[in-house]
């Protein structure tokens, strides 16, 4: 009987030591999981920031392209300017959103720009956004669309025979950038203040 109790005691001590080891191991895993959770939360934050950042980058490219096309030094074609501007701006935004811990990348970037009526454009962009850190990553396919109306700048026109007669008033440059829901994103006018030009009424 005494030998039997001894074996039971040995078994119980072994079991309890195993339980303690498992507890210690699970604690280590718990700490590791905490680290992963922190990294995942940071990646999620950066992803949210990046999503908003790229949407604003898209709007920035629209208004800058519109100004280049119809502003004080107007030239070129809006859609052609927009396509090259957007690519450049997205590249810059990707760079500034990345650091030595979290990497932000964009792939499958495609833009679409169509003139639906005179100086009214339908503009959209599609891309895949990936944010990743050492142990966490988040990705999604994103799309933004806008309706854009542009008014080109034109200087006032006076009658060349009688200089005090204005044939046409100065027209300010304007770009109206709206979401497809109708919500205004930007409405920027520019007064280039160019001298009136000679013409005929």
């Amino acid at each position: 009987m005494k030998g039997f109790v001894g074996w039971i005691a040995l078994a119980l001590v072994t079991t309890s030591l195993s339980v303690i080891s498992l507890l210690a191991l699970s604690l280590e895993n718990y700490q590791q999981n905490n680290l992963y959770e922190i990294q995942a939360a940071k990646v999620a934050d950066r992803f949210g920031d990046a999503q908003n950042f790229f949407e604003s980058t898209f709007d920035d490219a629209i208004v800058d392209s519109a100004y280049s096309y119809g502003g004080c030094n107007a030239s070129g074609d809006f859609c052609a300017i927009f396509n090259s501007t957007l690519t450049s701006y997205f590249s810059n935004s990707t760079s500034v959103l990345s650091d030595n811990i979290t990497n932000v990348s964009v792939s499958s970037l495609s833009e679409n720009c169509t003139e639906v009526s005179a100086e009214n454009y339908s503009v959209s962009v599609n891309f895949s956004l990936l944010v990743n850190s050492f142990n966490a990553s988040k990705s999604a396919d994103l799309s933004f669309s806008r309706n854009v109306s542009i008014t080109n700048y034109s200087a006032a026109v006076y009658n060349d025979s009688t200089t005090d007669v204005i044939c046409a008033n100065e027209t300010l440059f304007n770009v109206l950038d709206e979401k497809t829901s109708g919500e205004m994103v930007a409405n920027i006018s520019v007064n280039c203040s160019k001298p009136a030009v000679s013409g005929s009424c």
């Binding site: 004080c72 440059f173 205004m184 409405n187 920027i188 520019v190 007064n191 280039c192 203040s193």
Partner: peptide, 10 residues
């Protein structure tokens, strides 16, 4: 919101 800029600011 809506705004009007001069040439330098633009």
């Amino acid at each position: 919101s809506s705004c009007t800029l001069n040439k330098t600011a633009a």
